[in-house]
Simulated assay, not measured.
Amino acid sequence: MADPIQKILVLVPNWLGDAAMSTPALRALHKRFAAAHITVAGRASACALLAGLPWLHGFVALPARPNLLKLVQLGRRLRPHSRDLAVVLPHGFRAALLARLSGAARRLGYDRDRRALLLTDAVPPHREHGAIRPIYMAKEYLDLVRRLGCEDDGEGLELRAAPEAVAAARAHLGDGGPVVGIAAGAAFGPSKRWPAEYYARLADILAERAGARCVLLTGPGEENTREAVQAAARTRLIECDRGQPTIDTLKAAVSQLDLLVGNDS
């Protein structure tokens, strides 16, 4: 007898780190519902991060903070993908409302932000002494899909880089010592950033003492940080993205690293 769940929509978190931590739960969904078509909906950056995973079958990019009219329109757009089940990983009210507007027969998410009425399966969040407490996000997402009979395979987080992007990154790296990524940027400004000259000095030391090939990793809007590190370093810092970073080039470069040094970002 065929499994009644054939169309699954997963609303994923906005932040790239949280999106990466959703991959064990996404993989568990695929293993539990192997014949189902799984579509991911989220910010364009999150979709790009998860692209390439063989057990995800479609992606829908969502705008930031859509108003009610836009949510209704998005709900209609998502209906072909959410017929049987929508899994709501973000905590926000909008995500649960979008799942409801998508027409999914079953809607699974955590019972928080006054959204229980929008869900068919509202799961109590982790609490300690009666108060909601944060836990490791990968575990939180896995705990949610366990309500569907999904199991953790213990393989941890997983991302895939496009083969052509990996080949391009390798061409930039050449041959030599260990490959070290220098991620000098941060999303919330100087309070989250180690000074650029410190990163430059670290790159010089690693190159001198270990023969390291240091790769400078920056994102959009971090041009000043990139230029400051380059200007302060004596050693040549490799830029696999040629100063035009994308999620694809970032995944490819990171896949080749022996060590990554970065900020809390």
Rank of each mutant, 00 (worst) to 15 (best):
D175S: 14
F188I: 13
A186K: 12
A168M: 00
R170N: 04
G177Q: 01
V180E: 08
V166E: 06
L159P: 07
P178F: 04
R170S: 00
D175R: 12
P163D: 03
A165L: 13
G189P: 13
Y198A: 15
G177M: 10
E164Q: 12
E164I: 06
F188R: 15
Y198V: 14
A168G: 06
R201G: 15
E158I: 12
A183K: 03
V179R: 09
G177D: 00
E197K: 15
V179Y: 09
A169Q: 04
Y198R: 15
R160M: 12
L173I: 04
R170L: 10
A167T: 06
R170P: 10
Y198C: 14
A165T: 11
P178V: 11
F188K: 09
P190Y: 04
A183W: 05
E158Q: 15
V179T: 03
G185D: 07
A184Y: 08
A187W: 12
S191D: 12
W194P: 11
G181D: 00
A171C: 01
G174C: 02
Y199F: 15
H172I: 07
V179M: 05
G189S: 05
E197W: 15
F188N: 07
F188G: 10
L173V: 02
Y199I: 11
Y199Q: 05
A171W: 10
A169R: 05
S191N: 10
G181W: 07
A165E: 06
A165K: 06
E164N: 06
A171G: 05
A169G: 04
R201S: 15
E158M: 01
P163T: 02
G181M: 08
A168W: 09
H172V: 06
A161S: 07
A183T: 11
Y199D: 08
P190R: 09
R170Q: 13
P190G: 13
R193F: 05
S191L: 14
A167I: 14
R170K: 14
A196V: 08
H172S: 14
A183L: 11
F188L: 14
A186V: 09
G174N: 06
A162S: 05
E164F: 04
A183R: 14
V179G: 03
A200S: 08
A169P: 00
A183N: 03
D175G: 05
A162L: 02
G176I: 00
A183H: 03
E158V: 06
G189A: 12
V179F: 03
Y199C: 09
P163H: 08
V179D: 09
G189F: 13
A186I: 10
G185C: 04
G185L: 12
G189T: 15
S191W: 00
R160E: 14
A169F: 02
A196H: 11
L159G: 03
I182Y: 08
L173Y: 05
W194D: 08
E164Y: 13
K192N: 13
A183V: 08
R201F: 01
Y199V: 02
K192V: 05
K192C: 00
